[in-house]
Write a protein that binds this DNA or RNA. Structure first.
Lengths: 223, 223
DNA sequence: GCTAATGTACGAACTGGTGAGTTAGTCATA
DNA sequence: TATGACTAACTCACCAGTTCGTACATTAGC
């Protein structure tokens, strides 16, 4: 997720024994491996082999495969939380703010396919690792507050007509961004269209923004 | 997917030896098992144990675990194709037709969570089984033609302003429906909202329709 | 010297796949 | 319609290779 650089080198440049470094390296490798082949498909031995340390260290630091996967998820969600905390769109008018926010979500999903895969995998496991994690239960998302405030101001100024709350709008935006990355393989194989083709990137980015804004600003038939 | 009824009973009521029946039973069980725990997580022994036949028969009929999964996918996609062939919305006006089509997609996704899981799993494997299947490569979707015709008539009558093609609109509709089912666990765990809560069903169904129609009929800023 | 950190070697249980043999059903023929 | 040859359908036991996890030994750093 973060620093997969400098892979081999017997524990890099710093101290020979560096717990934090060892832990981080295991997490880096495990993230790649779990994202690549899923939880059940990943092999602890393979993960260990790809680190500069040994399998024993995985059990020493994380306890087991299950807890390792949970730790991977925790860090991955941490990254997206950080990104969302940098969100700075509230100086824009509501329409522009929502579009910008959708675009940032779009970009983030595109830039972190491994995260998308991990989330897909965790859903296959019915979010049992999130449930087991103290760090991840009901953490929500920093973006939610931002969306909430933009929505309120947009409704106040009469620009937004739709009756959605922040969570639902977040779901709407996420669904488009997530599907495009997560399902690109089956979609491509079935319909012969690559949803993440760089040449079509702007097309889909605009489509998302248009869709969200159209929804929020449409005149509703019977209210 | 189809007939998971009458599970045990040493080959049911019909003939004692019935190849078609045995094959179908293996597929039924395998579908459930693959959807439940993923490809790597599924155990051929477990699948065999849940049938009234033996593991050897799985290899006899399908060749191996990989081909069994492919066969499961082929049948699952067959079901959705059949459903889409029943589509009968072209007698409606374009707006109503698209909304109805979106609702049918919504309903189908909701009613087939196992199919959704299989698609998620297949995407983790980068659609390699679809690629390996003769039946599934580029099959497209019957719905696509329907969407294409509705879109054309809607644009002709000036109702639809958006410049989307059928595939992209299909992606938009699918993304919402798919996300709601596929990601309900992580979304629920993180945001405390159950996207498939029956009490909210109509809410999300309407939201999808509103979204698609708003997108298609919105006045575009600069054209 | 004490402890946190690390490495080695191993094992019990599992897992996909197969070899070899058996049985149910079919059908041509007497 | 009884029979026997034939084949598709099926069972069982087993193997070779993994795979998670751990017991035990060792080392670095304070």
């Amino acid at each position: 997720m973060t620093s997969v650089d400098e892979p081999a080198r017997p524990h890099g440049n710093g101290r020979l024994r560096d717990a934090a470094r060892t832990r981080a390296e295991i997490l880096d490798v495990a993230t790649l491996e779990f994202a690549r082949v899923g939880y059940a498909g990943a092999r602890v031995d393979d993960i260990a082999a790809r680190t500069s340390t040994t399998k024993r260290m995985i059990y020493y630091y994380f306890g087991g495969k299950e807890q390792l996967f949970t730790a991977v998820l925790e860090r991955a969600y941490g990254v997206i939380r950080e990104a969302e905390q940098q969100l700075d769109v509230e100086h824009l008018d509501p329409v522009a703010a929502i579009r910008r926010l959708a675009e940032l979500t779009f970009d983030h999903h595109e830039q972190h396919p491994d995260f998308i895969r991990l989330v897909s995998i965790e859903n296959i496991h019915e979010a049992e690792h999130i449930a087991a994690s103290e760090k991840l239960g009901r953490i929500g998302s920093p973006a939610l507050d931002v969306i909430g405030r933009i929505l309120a101001s947009g409704r106040e100024s009469g620009l937004f007509t739709a009756e959605v709350d922040a969570v639902d709008l977040h779901a709407m935006i996420s669904s488009f961004c997530f599907f495009r990355v997560a399902n690109r393989h089956t979609f491509g194989a079935l319909f012969g269209r690559d949803l993440v083709d760089p040449a079509q990137r702007e097309h889909y980015r605009a489509m998302l923004g248009d869709m969200v804004i159209a929804y929020l600003t449409a005149e509703r038939a019977t209210d």
